[in-house]
Each structure stands twice: as C-alpha cells, then as structure tokens.
C-alpha cells in the first residue's frame, strides 16, 4: 500500500461543466486526502476536457490529469477504461472514486478488475478507519433494507458514490493547482464495443434530479391518464413528476421518470408519493427528501413508515381536492 498515495476522483462533464456528482466527489475526496495527509487528484477524460481543469481545482483538486483524444469524444467503455487505467497505473492513487452514474456503473467495475482491485459500488458514506486507515465504504444493500460496510486492502481502494450523498466545497477560483496532460495513445482498433448513436429524451420543465418538489406516482395510479393530474400539480408547484418502477415498466411514463435504486436518486424538499407502497428499492432513491407525504388507500402500506404526513384513501378523490386547495393557497 505504501507505494500508493493520494485520492483520485474520476471526473465527469455535463453540459460543458463539471457534473454535480464530480464536485461532490471532490468535496469528499478533499476531506479524505486531508485526513491522510495526501494530495487530491482529479482525472478528466474526454474529447477536449482541458477547459474543466481549472474548475476541478476551484472545487478542491491539487492536481488534474487531463486525457483528451478524439476517440474519447463520447463515452465508450473500451477507450475510457484504457485511458483511466493508464493514469491510475502512472499515479497509483490509494483511493479512486467514481460517480454512480450511467458512466460510472459501466466504467468502474471494468477498471477495478483490470487493476486487480476490489470495488464497492453505490456508496453513500466514506470514512477512514481510525486505526488501519483503510477506507470504510458504506452502501445500501438488499434493495435498501440494510447497509453494509466494506473495506479492501487491495489498492487503489475503489468506490462508486451515489449522487447527492456528499457535499461539494464552495467554489474558490483563487485555489492553486497543477494541470498535467497525459497522452491517451489510443488506437481505433482498441474499441470493440462501438457507440453507434446516442438518443437523449428531451425533458420539459424542471429536471427530476434537480427539482425541489417531486410528485411521484406508483402502480396505484393505474394508467397514463392519471399522470396528467400529477403533472398539473407539479406544474403549479414548479416541480417535476416521477414514478416508481411499475408505471415505467408499463409504459405509462418514460423510463427516465423512475425514482429509486436503479432509477434516479433525488433529494427534493417536498416529495409527494401517490399510490406507491414504499418498497425499499424505491425509498432508497428518495431518502434524501426533506419531507415525504403519502397518499395511499392502504393504511398498512410501508410508505407511511417513511412519510411525515399521510392521507389514507383513494387518490382519485384526494388529489383533485388537494390540487384545488393548493392552487387556492398559492393564489393568496
């Protein structure tokens, strides 16, 4: 372990800026690096990501490794893993953190197997063991019904970290750091799984992950039409509509609406769950919500164990009256 030093964050870009999860990881990495008395590195891989290096420094990185190459323009696993592996072998960080995003889920396990190390995915808490200084990696398991803490003596100690689980530092543009360019050295032939097309589904209004108010419907809504009523309330409260898995699986709403373990992780101020039973796999995706309110016809539903306020009854009767009253209150 002694040859390994430093904490490295695998950075991601979103809309020309560092992704929120990357700034969160830098915040967490800064704390861990401080405790270890080591440096914080940020790795940026992409088509032309050099412009993000200063931002990474402003959010806490001491050193930024930049790998830019036309073959890295869009995420492709084979090329990204090679680039990340190259830098990881060169820098030999003690800890390597990746966001639990659609890229991180795909990249981190490959990288861990290639580096011969152990990875813990979807962590919500990271700390150092006071005596061994090993990284304690806490993650929800069994769909959120329990939590497990893992360690590993293999280096780098790797984790993917859930969005919104960590806090970023305040951006400080006066912070100093070093930018190091690394040649990707990629051959087109190294790409065995080739990206043919990327299709982004447009979202209207507030993005679910960013919304302060989320109105979420479950199987109890019964069909696509019901979701119109949820949209109406979300519109009034400038929020977003989400769903548990069944409405997505049934095609009542697009799959991007799914909240939960295998969907979006959200942390709104106000979360209204309608016709949702409150399965652990769903609740783990909104455990960061400040206030959970539930409407369910079953008084025994698990959602009432998680909610602050609840109404027991048929949503078809309750929601229109709730929307009307909220409209009235908002008009005052």
């Amino acid at each position: 372990m002694s040859e390994y030093s430093g904490v490295m964050i695998f950075g991601e870009a979103k809309e020309g800026k560092l992704a929120a999860v990357t700034t969160e990881l830098l915040g967490c990495g800064r704390r861990l690096a401080g405790d270890l008395g080591q440096e914080l590195h940020c790795l940026l891989v992409g088509g032309d990501v050099g412009s993000l290096a200063q931002e990474a420094i402003a959010f806490g990185a001491d050193k930024v490794y930049v790998v830019s190459d036309p073959l890295l323009e869009a995420y492709q696993a084979d090329a990204y893993v090679l680039a990340a592996e190259k830098v990881a072998r060169q820098v030999m960080p003690q800890i390597l953190l990746v966001g639990q995003t659609s890229i991180g889920r795909d990249l981190a396990p490959r990288l861990a197997f290639r580096l011969g190390t152990a990875l813990t995915t979807d962590c919500v808490e990271l700390a150092l063991d006071p005596t061994s200084k090993l990284l304690l990696k806490t993650k929800p398991v069994y769909g959120g019904n329990a939590q497990a803490v893992f360690t590993s003596e293999a280096c780098p100690q790797m984790a993917t970290v859930r969005a919104k689980a960590m806090s970023p530092l305040e951006r400080d543009d006066s912070r100093q750091g070093e930018v190091i360019t690394v040649e990707a050295g990629l051959e087109p032939s190294s790409i065995r799984a080739e990206l043919v097309e990327r299709v982004a589904e447009e979202v209207e209004g507030v993005r679910l992950e960013d919304a302060e108010v989320v109105i979420c419907g479950g199987r109890g809504i019964g069909g696509a039409e019901g979701f119109r009523q949820l949209e109406e309330l979300a519109g009034i409260l400038k929020g977003a509509v989400g769903a548990s898995r069944p409405p997505c699986d049934n095609g009542w709403v697009p799959s991007g609406y799914q909240v939960g373990l295998t969907g979006k992780i959200i942390a709104p101020d106000f979360y209204l769950a309608i016709g949702i039973s409150g399965a652990s796999q769903h609740m783990t995706g909104c455990s960061g919500a400040k206030t959970v309110v539930a409407i369910n016809k079953d008084p025994e539903a698990n959602i009432f164990r998680e909610a602050s306020y609840g109404v027991v009854g048929d949503w078809k009767k309750i929601l229109p009256a709730l929307t009307a009253k909220i409209k009235e209150l908002m008009a005052d």
Binding site: T291, V293, P299, E306, S308, Y309, G310, V311, I318, P320
Partner: peptide, 22 residues
C-alpha cells in the same frame, strides 16, 4: 418514522386539511 395521518369527514376534506398543514 412518525407519520401524521391527516383525517377528514370526506376524502376532499382530508385533502384540504393536508394542504393547510403543509
């Protein structure tokens, strides 16, 4: 977990009092 269940004579009343509580 302590959930306040909001009641009413009718579902509509319960909904209205939930809105007021919120």
């Amino acid at each position: 977990g302590s959930c306040e269940i909001v009641d009413g004579e009718t579902p509509e009343e319960a909904a209205a009092s939930l809105a007021l509580k919120l």
